[in-house]
Every structure is written in C-alpha cells, then in structure tokens.
Design a protein around this nucleic acid. Structure first.
Lengths: 222, 222
DNA sequence: CTGGATACGAGTGTATGCAGTGGTCTTGTG
DNA sequence: CACAAGACCACTGCATACACTCGTATCCAG
C-alpha cells in the first residue's frame, strides 16, 4: 500500500462508478453475490469506501439486499417497461421545456452535437451510444430543470445494462438520427408539443429495442 | 455502552429517518453545518452509520457538500416549482395507471382511507397530513408501478419540509377532501384521463399552497 | 502595526478491529 | 442410514484508530 489515510486517489464518486460499470458491463452479473471483502480486495481499498458505494448502488436499484448480504439485482421485463414508461413521460417533458425555454445560446451546443452525431463512423456502436448520450444530455440541459435531469439520470442508470446501447440494433441509428434532427427542429422552432411528441416517440422506440434485447438475452440463457 | 457489535438496535434505515425528520422539522435548519462527530454523539452511535445516513440524504437532495463538509441544503422557489412540476406529471400518471389497472381488491383499501379522511378532527393538521399521505400512497399502490412510486417518494421527500403539511393552510382541507373523492370516483370508474386530471389539479393546488408557505417563511426571515 | 511563517485544531477519508448471526459441515446417536 | 446437536466460519454492522488537509490563531521580524 503506497498510501493510507485520506488522500482519495480515486475521488469519491469514482469507486461507485467503477462498480456501476462492472454491473452495466455484466462483469458483475445479475444475481451475483457481492461480498464486501472480495470487492475491497479487487479494487484495492478497504471495506469502508466499498460499503458507501454499495449503499449508493442500492439506492440506484442496481443492487439489492438478499439473504445476509447484497446481490446484483435481477431485472424483469416489467421493470424495464415501468422505467421506460416514466422515461417516455419525462423525456417528453424535458424536451417540451427545452422548446419553451429555448435561447440562442442553446442552439450552438445542440447543433454541434447533432453534427457530431451525423459524422459517426457507421457501425461504431460505442460512438453512436456516446453521441446519442451527449445529444440527449444537451437537450436535458436546455430544459433548464435540474429536477427533471436528476430523475432522468436515475432512470437511465437503471436500464443501461446488459448491452452498451440500444444502438446495437442494426438499422436503428439512421432512424434515431432523423428523430434527433426532428427534435432539434422542434426545440429551435419553440414548438413544445412537437418536441414532447418526438422525444416520446423516440423513447418508445428505444424501449422496444431494449425489450427485444432483454428477450433475446433471456432466451439464450433459458 | 450496553451493546457493541452488530445488533442494529435501530434497524438500518431508522437513523436515516431520524436525520431526515430533524431536517423536515427544521431542527436542522437549511444552511446548518453537519458535523459527523456531533451528529454521532447526538444520536448515540459512531460516525460510521451516521456517514451512511448522510450519504443517503445527499442522494435525496436534502443535504449538500459545502466547503469541507456537509450542510442542510437551502431550497429556493425554483426548486420547489421544479419538484412540483414533475410531481404533477407523475401523480397524474400514477392516478391514470390506478384507474386503468383498477381491481375490486383496491377499492376496499381506498375507500376505508377515504372514510378515515372524512372523519379527521377539524383542525388537527397532523391527522390531516397523515390521512392525506395514506390515501395518496394507496393510490400509488393501486397504480402498480414501483418505479413511479419510487420517483414520487423521492420528490415528496424533497419538498416536505418547513411545515408539517400544506394542510396548515386553513380552508384547503375540505377542498382537498372533495378532490380525493373525485379521484376515488375516477379510479373506481376506470376513467384514466379523469383520474389524471384530478390528481394533477390536486397537486397544482398543493404546489400553490407550498409556494405561499415558502414565501411567508422567507418574508419573515428577510 | 503589518506580513508571513509556523503550530494547532477541527473535521473528513480510510483502514482495521471486534462482536454477533446464520448457514454449513461434522459428529454422535437412535 | 437419517437426523439432531454442536462447532465452525464467512460475512456483516458498528466502533475506533489513524492519516491527511485546510482554516485560523499565534508569534516573530521588519
């Protein structure tokens, strides 16, 4: 051990993120038991910070109490449908809010992210997922409603698992890109209801793809 | 110390609730510094469980990082409006869902809580708040959507502060009770859109009262 | 009296120790 | 061989010890 005491070599949230990513990537699979000592060893820290990260993951709904300890939460189809149901509503709300509160200063950011999206290498799923995420977050920011953003983040965390992105579905990207353009137009045109509709539809399609992904993953496993 | 080691005399969430209640009641006022050692002494435990509770309060948005440590979060009008904005949407959604998924078995519970509400001693604000909360939670449960319930809980926690309830506003109770009856009728009648509207309107009024409460509290303080 | 350096203290982050609990494995008995 | 009693152990929850940081008070020199 090169250091003890305070000095957070890993700033506070980062251990949480490491664990969250391990869950998202499937390295820690649904149902896996999480033993504090084991995780502590694996991440090179003591149990204390591990415990804090686990508590947070529990709040996020990624991890749950099971018998004596914790395990990675299993996800059923109902849960995915529930989360997307709320997400459809709130993505619509934030898009509408972005349209209502639109200011010129928002446009540059949105537009540059839109371009970046258009220039993604075809087939590069990770780049798609990233460009998509950035664009959506820019819309969230343009909504100027931190409470909505918090809720949307919580919801995203709960379903961004099992696969890097719903864009692993071949063929969805161009369609999604078109919807992003529509959304951009609606926001810039200050048409709140159009923005709500487009964002909602976009999320519904994301839901359908996610459901299909879940189903194929669970057929494979039995 | 009568006991050491595991035995959680206070089951795990309860310390969190104690702190949350101290914030809600104003015992720990907005802006107050929270010192782990002090809280630990006050609640008769060590820093470890206090820290876990604080992390959770931070997630809830009741407490925030400030300089070296934590303080009780200040709340501005915008935040209250944001939270209620989302709450209006989601209370509407859960009411609609309750109407859609209505089953006879839900009716007994809703009805008995409605009666209990009608029999509250006039002027007993705490009893009003409690009856109100129970009725709403029954509606949430009838919606059969745990994700929505989670979100609504998070939102409630963030605004149920400063005063025990929006029912401290004289005259709101009968009106709210009437709305609860309307909501009940809409759910039992399986009229999702009516339920959504009633619940939304109800929340809007709650918002207005909360805003008025906030304003009078902040005029008094300057 | 003022500026800067140093010492101190309050408070957090992390590690570790210790007690209790529930499951499991072992052993003895009918 | 089946089953109950007991020992063991893996693991958690809580307490405490220690390291480090930053603000502040103090003290000395100019």
């Amino acid at each position: 051990m090169t250091s003890t005491g305070q000095r957070p070599d890993r700033s506070r949230g980062s251990l949480y993120e490491e664990l969250r990513d391990r869950i998202a990537s499937g390295d820690l699979a649904p149902g896996d038991h999480l033993v504090e000592t084991t995780l502590a060893k694996h991440h090179g820290v003591s149990r204390t910070p591990i415990r804090e990260a686990l508590r947070r993951l529990e709040q996020d709904g990624l991890v749950e109490q099971f018998e004596r300890g914790l395990r990675v939460r299993l996800q059923d189809l109902d849960e995915i449908l529930e989360v997307y149901g709320v997400r459809i509503l709130l993505e619509g709300a934030v898009a509408a809010s972005a349209a209502e509160r639109y200011r010129e200063s928002d446009r540059l950011r949105l537009h540059s992210l839109l371009e970046r999206m258009d220039n993604v290498e075809p087939g590069d799923v990770d780049a798609m997922a990233e460009a998509n995420r950035h664009f959506h977050q820019a819309v969230w920011a343009a909504g100027h409603n931190q409470t909505l953003v918090d809720m949307l983040n919580r919801l995203s965390v709960r379903v961004d698992r099992y696969s890097p992105s719903t864009y692993s579905d071949v063929g969805r990207w161009p369609r999604a890109a078109a919807q992003h353009h529509e959304l951009y137009q609606a926001i810039v045109g200050r048409d709140a209801e159009a923005a709500r509709t487009v964002a909602g539809t976009h999320m519904q399609e994301a839901r359908d793809v996610r459901v299909a992904l879940w189903q194929s993953a669970h057929e494979a496993a039995g």
